[in-house]
């Protein structure tokens, strides 16, 4: 099952530039939350803070608290954080020299799993959860780079799921995909939230409206509005949200 995330007064900097100006929000367990906002609003920085990727950028720092239920993410080992808070990026990034199988198995091997049967079972389970198994079952030892873009992205989702995270972060996961692959990823989000907490950053407002239970609108590093997706897209409270989602600025 997924876990909820509590973010309190989160500030993030790149050098002297304050990118997030004190974000406080609760991300519900087993629900999909979309983060929307114009370029540079801090939405990617926000999710990079959630799995401690932000601090790996040169000159980057953060303040505030992020808790995964009762655990403080910033007192945990960052490697453990990235296991429980998985991430999928905008561009599918399978390990180019590895097979489909090894792309998934490598994270498990690094986690100490050596038993071949267990590895194979976990690889199969992950591919099934990412709705890719039926398409690759007969060629899992072929190079991952031979897959289509949409399949590669689902492989990356399978790779993130293999280590059994509690939370799955998705940074523009479908922006490089064709409409059919996009819909497959969106359907997958719908299924995955039964087992995981999903946070999805997207520029595609219709995608947020389709997949997310809750939507947060960021602007200039601030959380402007956060609520049920239906409310945000039919009757937003803040004029800036209205102007952004109706395309009047941004």
């Amino acid at each position: 099952m997924g876990k909820s995330i509590s973010v309190t007064d989160l500030k993030a900097w790149y050098g002297d530039s304050l990118t997030l100006k004190g974000i406080t929000m609760e991300l519900d367990a087993n629900r999909a939350t979309a983060i929307i906002g114009p370029s540079g609003c801090g939405k990617s920085t926000f999710i990079r803070c959630l799995n401690r990727l932000h601090e790996t950028s040169p000159g980057a720092k953060m303040e505030g608290s992020i808790r995964l239920e009762d655990e403080d993410l910033y007192t945990m080992d960052p490697v453990d954080v990235r296991r429980v808070v998985g991430m999928v990026f905008q561009k599918a990034n399978p390990f180019p020299t590895m097979s489909i199988y090894d792309n998934i198995a490598i994270g498990l091997r690094l986690g100490g799993i050596r038993n071949r049967t267990e590895l194979t079972d976990r690889v199969e389970k992950s591919l099934k959860m990412a709705a890719l198994w039926d398409e690759v079952a007969d060629r899992i030892h072929t190079p991952a780079t031979a897959l289509s873009g949409g399949q590669q992205q689902r492989l990356c989702i399978a790779r993130a799921l293999a280590v059994e995270p509690e939370v799955l972060l998705m940074d523009e996961p479908a922006s490089a995909l064709d409409p059919v692959s996009t819909l497959r990823v969106e359907e997958l989000v719908e299924q995955l939230k039964e087992s995981y907490t999903i946070v999805i950053v997207t520029h595609n407002m219709q995608q947020a409206a389709r997949v997310a239970d809750k939507t947060a609108f960021f602007l200039n590093g601030e959380l402007i509005e956060f609520g049920e997706t239906t409310g945000i897209f039919t009757n937003p409270v803040d004029k800036r949200t209205e102007d952004y989602i109706t395309g009047r600025f941004g």
């Binding site: 407002m205 039919t234 209205e242 989602i245 109706t246």
Partner: peptide, 9 residues
């Protein structure tokens, strides 16, 4: 136009 919010209403 995929209208939302006030436009949709």
């Amino acid at each position: 136009q995929q209208p939302v919010a006030t436009d949709l209403r």
